[in-house]
């Protein structure tokens, strides 16, 4: 187990370096002069442009820029935002808690709704309940998050007046965005829980448990669900990445001041150090969450020996 964990961590390091490299390459890959693009083609005095190029280190050869970039990032320096003049790390740190809050809230919603719908669908397979749950899952898969969010605002804020349209950062204002993102994400969880449950329910130990005379509730919750959770944990980990990026859209809908909003702003202003920083941070957290999930997987599933 310890050996597996160590190897799994070891395989993550080259991936993180590759991500770092791709993020670094974003700027050289931009067609045209990056500094000119930052000025939106508006003419600036040549000194300003030259100064900017020098400041950003763009007048050095690419390999030197790369080594410098690696060194900076490893020391925790992601550069300076062009528009706000603030360190990128600080900009992201200010917004990250809001996005994390939204992602965790949605994760809670998606797990709760997805588990209940998936279990019900599996237990009542081929009944109206199963059909309803799968229609719900299909609808969730096809739902544009921004429209769903606007519908939620229209219904709960405009018509019913339960929530204010502008979030104030309170826990209450988290409800609508988390529901929007969580309900959409729950469709994937529901489908997966259903198929995992069906697979487990067909196995011998379930028949044994029933034959022993255990109550159905205990068979389902203790014997079946416990085993069905193993693949579900993986998907929930992958979901987290989806939630982080889904937050980009939902934040725009609900005026939620998180990383997503920061990213959309930065993209509009072509603030490259900030964009690169955000992509790096989100991709890295995604990889780390998946690493965590894989390690958890090994703990959860005693059948697999990772020798």
């Amino acid at each position: 187990m310890a050996g597996y964990a160590l190897r799994r961590v070891a395989t993550t390091i080259p991936v993180l370096f590759a991500i770092l490299t791709l993020v670094f390459l974003m700027r050289p890959l931009v067609p045209g002069d990056p500094v000119a693009i930052m000025f939106f083609g508006r003419s600036s005095s040549p000194e300003v442009v030259a100064n900017m190029r020098h400041q950003l280190g763009l007048d050095d050869p690419l390999p030197i820029q790369y080594v410098r970039y690696l060194g900076d990032v490893l020391r925790g320096d992601l550069g300076t935002s062009i528009t706000t003049r603030q360190p990128v790390v600080q900009e992201i740190a200010e917004r990250f808690p809001a996005t994390l809050q939204l992602a965790l809230g949605s994760l809670a919603v998606s797990c709760l709704v997805g588990l209940v719908a998936g279990i019900l669908a599996a237990v009542y397979k081929d009944t109206a309940i199963d059909t309803a749950a799968m229609v719900f899952a299909m609808a969730g898969l096809s739902m544009p998050g921004f429209w769903f969010g606007l519908v939620m605002i229209y219904f709960f804020s405009v018509r019913l007046g339960w929530f204010s349209v502008i979030p104030d950062g309170s826990l209450k204002s988290l409800v609508l965005p988390a529901l929007t993102l969580g309900l959409i994400a729950s469709s994937v969880v529901a489908r997966l829980v259903r198929s995992a449950m069906l697979e487990v329910l067909g196995q011998d130990f379930i028949r044994t448990a029933r034959a022993k005379g255990l109550r159905e509730r205990r068979v389902l919750l203790r014997h079946a669900l416990g085993n069905a959770m193993i693949p579900v944990v993986t998907i929930i980990g992958l979901q987290f990445g989806g939630l982080l990026s889904g937050a980009f859209i939902i934040e725009a809908v609900f005026a939620w001041h998180g990383i997503g909003e920061l990213a959309v702003d930065a993209l509009g202003k072509r603030d490259f150090p900030l964009i690169q920083g955000i992509v790096l941070v989100i991709a890295t957290s995604y990889v780390l969450v998946n690493l965590l999930v894989d390690l958890l997987y090994a703990v959860l599933d005693p059948r697999i020996t990772y020798s």
Binding site: P14, V15, A18, I19, L22, V23, M26, L29, V30, P31, I37, G241, G242, L244, S245, G246, F248, I249, A263, L267, R270, F272, I275, V279, I282, A283, Y286, V287
Partner: peptide, 23 residues
């Protein structure tokens, strides 16, 4: 390995990063 690294990015983020590059 290159494909794996691309898969390490959440899909939407990858699309967003490419739009950032292309405009």
């Amino acid at each position: 390995r290159f494909t794996d690294v691309m898969l390490a990015f959440p899909g939407f983020l990858l699309a967003l990063a490419i739009v950032a590059i292309l405009g």
